[in-house]
């Protein structure tokens, strides 16, 4: 078996193991949430009997380990359970499957993340490479100053500034990004423009600066001097000789930022009323809707692990020492 296939399989198994550990942590963390769903729904005035009956119906009276195995057993088969909300101790069960609840939100979150990534990653790479090429020039300083400013500004502030200039003073873009499944792709893009722009500003700085640093780091290598002494232009030196050796650190930082796009955008979602998973999870925590909280948290962890796995694999396949062993 090729060593890369072997490494990838190893990493995948490690990823699954990490996910299992995360599921344990999520489950135990939820046990520590104050109050419970029964009281939260039925209110202070409910009698103890009603609460107990309600808890029993939801399975909350069972010991923790049993509930954990029920949950994990379901997840492995693709069943994330039913949401707690919409249930009542009496009458019809109007609760919805967690999957039905999360799926459309997930689609929205991934839509916003991909749209942002498609703009931000090429932009960051371009800026990183060009600032490395023209390092210490005015261009380099301006780009660094601007990106530093955007990274140092809280994202909600960036969001409101953009709303002020692009939606309020000039009505170029909508300030509400309340997209839904019935919209066309063009309409979705138009509606999501502002949150996407906000996120771009927030993540470009980090990726661009790391790209620049990773390349500059290599410029002191003897093989870079050799390339210059072969008479190659600065651009050829950087694109042909520095960049191919810089992919591993660049991929890592890109993965980190893409993960943030999926798991860390709740503030931006709130500002633009964007129906993503982040908002759903915050709402679920407030109402103690445990199955939804667990499913969202697990999804976030999975995203994180997968993106890092991809970054690792890029690091491996761009390293000829591993790709072409002796």
């Amino acid at each position: 078996m090729h060593p890369i296939v072997k490494t990838v399989i190893q990493r995948l198994m490690l990823g699954v193991f990490t996910l299992f550990l995360v599921s344990l942590i999520i489950f135990s963390a939820i046990q520590f949430l104050p109050g419970d769903f029964g009281e939260a729904v039925l209110g202070q005035s409910a009698t103890e009997d009603t609460v107990a009956a309600f808890r029993k119906e939801l399975g909350l009276d069972q010991p923790a380990y049993k509930r954990y195995f029920n949950w994990v057993g379901g997840v492995v088969q693709g069943d994330f359970g039913s949401s707690f909300s919409g249930r009542a101790s009496s009458g019809v069960d109007r609760s919805r499957k967690v999957v039905d609840l999360i799926a459309p939100r997930l689609e929205n979150t991934l839509f916003l993340a991909s749209m942002t990534a498609l703009i931000a990653v090429p932009l960051a790479l371009f800026l990183g490479i060009t600032t490395a090429l023209y390092r210490n020039s005015i261009y380099d300083r301006v780009v660094n100053a601007v990106t530093l400013t955007t990274i140092a500004t809280p994202e909600f502030f960036v969001a409101y500034i953009l709303i002020l200039f692009l939606a309020s003073l000039n009505q170029w873009l909508p300030s509400l990004a309340n997209i839904d499944a019935s919209m066309s792709l063009g309409e979705k893009i138009y509606k999501s423009a502002l949150p996407s722009l906000t996120l771009t500003l927030v993540i470009v700085a980090h990726m661009m600066r790391m790209t620049r640093a990773a390349i500059i780091n290599l410029l002191a290598s003897p093989y870079i001097e050799m390339a210059r002494l072969k008479g190659l232009s600065s651009r050829q030196v950087i694109l042909r000789h520095a960049l191919p050796n810089a992919w591993a650190p660049i991929a890592t930082v890109i993965a980190f930022n893409l993960a943030y796009l999926v798991v860390g955008v709740v503030i931006v979602e709130v500002v633009f009323v964007y129906p993503g998973v982040g908002q759903l999870m915050v709402d679920a925590v407030r109402t103690r809707d445990i199955p939804v909280v667990q499913a969202s948290a697990l999804f976030f962890a999975g995203t994180y692990i997968m993106l890092n796995l991809i970054a690792d694999i890029i690091g491996i396949i761009t390293n000829p020492r591993i790709l072409h062993p002796r």
Binding site: P222, M226, R228, L229, G231, L232
Partner: peptide
């Protein structure tokens, strides 16, 4: 202008070939 000469009319052989060859190519 010097680049036009480097690698064509004047060439360089470095001390550590292991470090002076680009590992990626």
């Amino acid at each position: 202008k010097k680049r036009k000469l480097w690698g064509t009319r004047i060439a360089y052989v470095a001390q550590s070939a292991a470090a002076a060859f680009n590992p990626a190519h």
